[in-house]
Simulated scan of single mutants.
Amino acid sequence: MTLEEFKETLIRSLPPENTSVHIKALWYDAKGDWRLAHDLIDHLKDPTSAHVHAYLHRVEGDLWNASYWYKRASQSEFKGTLVEEWEHLFYLLIK
């Protein structure tokens, strides 16, 4: 699935089937449902989940918490815009 195809699914009421929890979290975030996006990955402790978790706390504006989760993910804090990071995560996750 391309980024453009993924964005086209945002008009739907549910995320695309057969996608990872991480992609679903990005989908709900893009739909404006930060809480559900966060709830999907909040309990997961793997590095990929930690990376998405960091991004979501950055969206929230909780930079201290985002920093904590970037460290848990072994990732540098993202320096671009939130849109750039969302797209960056999409490309990492869709591989």
Rank of each mutant, 00 (worst) to 15 (best):
F6P: 12
K71N: 05
W64E: 15
N65T: 02
V52A: 02
P16I: 08
S76Y: 10
L3P: 05
K24S: 13
M1T: 04
T19I: 15
V59L: 13
K79R: 14
K71G: 02
Q75R: 15
P47E: 14
W64N: 14
R12A: 15
W27F: 06
V59P: 04
E77N: 10
L89W: 01
W34I: 11
H38W: 13
I11K: 11
R12W: 14
K79A: 12
H43C: 14
V21D: 10
W27N: 03
L26H: 03
L93N: 02
L40N: 05
L93A: 04
E77S: 12
F78I: 00
A66M: 06
G32D: 04
E8N: 11
G80F: 01
E5V: 11
L56S: 07
T81N: 00
E8W: 07
S74G: 06
T19P: 06
Y70N: 00
L89E: 02
W86V: 00
H22M: 11
S13V: 13
M1R: 03
L63V: 11
Y91W: 11
L92G: 07
L3I: 08
P16H: 05
L92E: 12
T19N: 10
L10M: 09
H53P: 02
D46R: 04
A50W: 03
Q75E: 13
Y68N: 00
H53N: 05
N65Q: 00
I11E: 09
A50S: 11
A73K: 07
H57E: 07
A37M: 06
W34N: 07
D62G: 04
K79N: 10
K24P: 08
I23E: 06
I23Q: 09
I11Q: 11
I23M: 13
D39T: 15
L92P: 03
L40G: 04
N18C: 08
V21G: 11
P47D: 08
D46W: 05
E5F: 13
E77R: 11
T2N: 08
W86D: 00
K7E: 09
D39W: 13
G80I: 02
L82K: 10
Y55A: 09
A54H: 01
F78T: 01
L40F: 07
R72Y: 03
V83R: 13
W34M: 09
I41C: 08
W69F: 03
